[in-house]
Computed example of a mutant assay.
Amino acid sequence: MVEAVAPSASLAEKIEWLIHNSWPDDLPDAGTNIEIAKAISNRTGEDMSSTTVWKLRTGRQDNPQFKTLTALATFFDVPIGYFGFAEEATSIDEDLTFKALLRKLHNAEIKPEVLRALIDLSPKTRWLMDELILAAAAADRRAEA
């Protein structure tokens, strides 16, 4: 299950989420910070170093220049508000979660027949499945930490 990053998440957490869930489909998968910086620079025309990417991803830089945020927003096709304006963040996160879900469906990481089956369940059973999926996702996150 693709879970949105919380509106209160750090800039580093938001960037990591975008790299893992909203990387442009027409590019090779995100690799090193060097490859990420090059992809962003090539796509946006804004010069970005691998050091900047590293600092942003690790939280060592949490107040980048506006042009850096603009390049990130352009590259990941998100509104600039995603990076910090709380009143916009919840709506943006919901849209991004939906886009990530569609990407996983398109890439056959989530079976469409499973989603169809969930829709057809009774409300009580769907609630039970929701709880099961959320518990599994939480256990998965704990295992990765």
Rank of each mutant, 00 (worst) to 15 (best):
I34M: 14
I34A: 13
E35R: 13
E35W: 12
I36V: 06
I36M: 08
A37Y: 12
A37L: 14
A37F: 14
A37Q: 14
A39K: 10
A39G: 10
S41G: 04
S41T: 09
N42V: 07
N42I: 06
R43P: 01
T44M: 01
G45I: 03
G45R: 03
G45Y: 03
D47S: 07
D47H: 08
M48W: 09
S49R: 10
S50E: 14
T51P: 09
T51Q: 15
V53E: 11
K55Y: 11
K55V: 06
K55I: 06
K55P: 03
L56M: 09
L56Y: 11
R57D: 05
T58R: 08
G59F: 07
R60N: 14
Q61C: 04
Q61G: 01
Q61P: 00
D62H: 05
N63E: 10
P64I: 00
P64R: 00
Q65F: 03
Q65C: 02
F66R: 08
F66S: 06
K67N: 10
K67M: 03
K67E: 10
T68M: 00
T68V: 03
T70W: 01
A71N: 02
A71C: 02
A71P: 02
L72I: 05
L72D: 05
L72K: 04
A73V: 05
A73K: 03
A73Q: 05
A73D: 04
A73P: 06
T74Y: 01
F75E: 11
F75T: 11
F76K: 05
F76H: 05
F76S: 04
F76N: 06
D77Q: 15
V78W: 04
P79H: 10
I80A: 04
G81T: 04
G81Y: 03
Y82Q: 01
F83M: 00
F83Q: 00
F83Y: 03
G84M: 02
G84N: 01
A86W: 12
A86D: 12
E87P: 07
A89F: 09
T90K: 14
T90Q: 15
S91N: 15
S91F: 13
S91I: 15
I92A: 09
D93A: 15
D93K: 10
E94I: 14
D95G: 11
L96W: 00
F98W: 11
F98E: 13
K99Y: 05
K99P: 02
A100M: 08
A100G: 08
L101W: 01
L101M: 05
R103G: 02
R103V: 00
K104T: 08
K104H: 08
K104P: 06
L105C: 02
L105W: 02
H106C: 09
H106G: 11
N107H: 12
N107Q: 11
N107A: 12
A108I: 09
A108Y: 13
K111W: 09
E113N: 13
E113D: 13
V114R: 06
L115T: 06
L115G: 04
R116Q: 05
A117C: 11
